[in-house]
Nucleic acid binder design. Structure first.
Length: 452
RNA sequence: GCCCUGGUAGUAUAGUCCGGUUAGUAUACGGGCCUGUCGAGCCCGUGACCCGGGUUCAAAUCCCGGCCAGGGCGCCA
């Protein structure tokens, strides 16, 4: 199946009068009767002998327009076309197996609606790949490349699949605030905003507000939205602004209920991509498989032993570093043949105050999802008992006053609950094997880049 | 926040160590040839040393600062 949703949801069947086109280019089939009208960007022009070939592209595909010398005005207009001009064309669809692009159009009229200057400021031939910086400076043109656009189409399907799963499983979509009055953990890495003369911040995670909605009794929710990190990270896997699919659910037995939802969510997103984005995946040369469930789970303190066997010494009670993360991913791939896995029972001392501690131990019911060797989410069971939360805030050396707005609500009956937030761009990056997360978002925000 | 590497035509690069010819190549772009191109091919042409300061007879090249880019670590999604 081709990527129907990307076309038919907008097919111009609703009239046509006044619309520039009667068809998406990708929907053209040999043998279509009568005249079709298409519009798009000139992808390529080539003169050979008495022919002038023009490739026309819209988001659905590419077709070839062939004009012969002697076609009068049409040939003249065709001769003046340049790369990336935006044009509307009327013509008939011919069956020409000789045209590798697919179908061929014999035009009766060509109208130039917008000329493109040339040469373009980045490579569009595909022969001399422009650097990422140049591409991002000229992102709208960069995204005209079907491969680059495919990433965004796939991401849309991924999120849609996840939403379908959540909606059909009784999760309620909510929108929690992006502007907050205080961080979730003290917050050195928050962007500050002037809020009518008061200090406000862009959220780094919708975490605490989701928990308050559990206190409210919404029971199962998700929040799809942006988060910001003011960390000046220069890596291929960090953005200062990213989106997450943040899920929270109550009435759980323990953190394992959370992990079950999370792995189903990821699998559902990937299944949607496989089903709906066959041509986009082919374009990117990605062979995607729905991950087997359940995902493998590694638990602390066993993780230390595994790492030591792999020749990596992580001191007892310490967090995983980047190398450890990658080693564990290799270990899981080798022993479980899986690209995704959970790490559970992180040391309590390296996790924030709101996590639930496993009774009488130094471990927390705190889980990370790792995919493709990269941390995709953090989550687990949260502490829902008022006294414990207060105690843990003290243990972490935080100022209780700063968290009163959150904690006080737990004095009036809170259900056991847990959740997680999956980074959308990171998940996209991992399933497509992208080298840089900036390719997984149309207009990335990094420490130096704020435009376009 | 720390560390490493880089910035040369529209794009992507060679040249930089070891200062000194007309700054080379590919691609894009413009012109020409070619009776079906599809990374077509062939010929001709236009076009560049990030910014500021310093050293020197002389700087793309060496030194300092800035800005930007890519990456590693930290932190995280």
């Amino acid at each position: 199946m081709d990527s129907v949703l990307f076309r038919r949801d907008l097919t111009d069947s609703h009239g046509g009068a006044g619309m520039l086109r009667s068809h998406y280019i990708g929907d053209l089939k040999p043998g279509m009767s009568g005249e079709v009208r298409i519009a798009g960007w000139v992808d390529r022009v080539k003169d050979v002998g008495r022919f002038r070939f023009i490739w026309l592209r819209d988001r659905s595909g590419i077709c070839q327009i062939t004009v012969e010398r002697g076609q009068g005005d049409v040939y003249d207009v065709a001769s003046s076309l340049g790369i990336h001009d935006f044009v509307a064309i009327s013509g008939t669809v011919l069956e020409k197996p000789i045209a590798k692009v697919g179908v061929e159009i014999k035009p009766t009229r060509i109208t130039i609606l917008s000329k493109s200057e040339s040469p373009l400021p980045l490579d569009v031939s595909g022969l001399v790949k422009s650097g990422l910086a140049t591409r991002l400076d000229w992102r709208p043109i960069d995204l005209r490349d079907p491969k680059n656009m495919a990433v965004l189409k796939i991401q849309a399907a991924l999120v849609r699949g996840m939403q379908k799963y959540l909606d059909s499983s009784g999760f309620i979509q909510v929108f929690t605030p992006c502007l907050i009055g205080a961080g979730s953990e003290g917050g050195a890495e928050l962007f500050e905003v002037d809020y009518f003369g008061r200090r406000a911040y862009l959220r780094q995670d919708p975490q605490l507000h989701r928990q308050l909605l559990m206190v409210a009794g919404l029971d199962k929710i998700y929040d799809l939205g942006p988060s910001w990190r003011a960390e000046p990270s220069h890596t291929p896997r960090h953005l200062c602004e990213y989106r997450s699919c943040a899920v929270e659910l109550s009435f759980i037995e323990d953190e394992r209920d959370v992990m079950r939802v999370e792995e189903e969510l990821v699998a559902a997103g990937i299944r949607e991509v496989i089903e709906m984005c066959e041509s986009e995946l082919r374009l990117l040369g990605v062979e995607l498989e729905a991950p087997r469930r359940p995902f493998p789970v590694l638990e602390f303190p066993k993780v230390y032993e595994i790492l030591e066997d792999l020749g990596k010494k992580v001191p007892w009670g310490e967090d995983l570093d980047r190398e450890a993360e990658k080693l564990l991913a290799e270990y899981v791939k080798e022993n479980h043949n899986h690209d995704f896995f959970f790490v559970n029972k992180f040391p309590y001392k390296v996790k924030p105050f709101y996590v639930m501690r496993e009774d009488g131990t130094e471990w927390a019911r705190s889980t990370d999802l790792i995919g493709g060797g990269l941390e995709l989410s953090s989550g687990g069971q949260r502490e829902h008992r008022y006294e414990r939360i207060v105690q843990q805030i003290r243990e972490k050396g935080l100022n209780l006053e700063d968290f009163k707005w959150f904690v006080e609500h737990f004095r009036y009956g809170a259900p056991p609950h847990g959740g997680f937030a999956i980074g959308i761009e990171r998940l996209t990056m991992v399933i497509l094997g992208l080298e840089n997360i900036r390719e997984a978002t149309p207009f990335p925000r990094t420490p130096e880049r704020l435009l376009p």
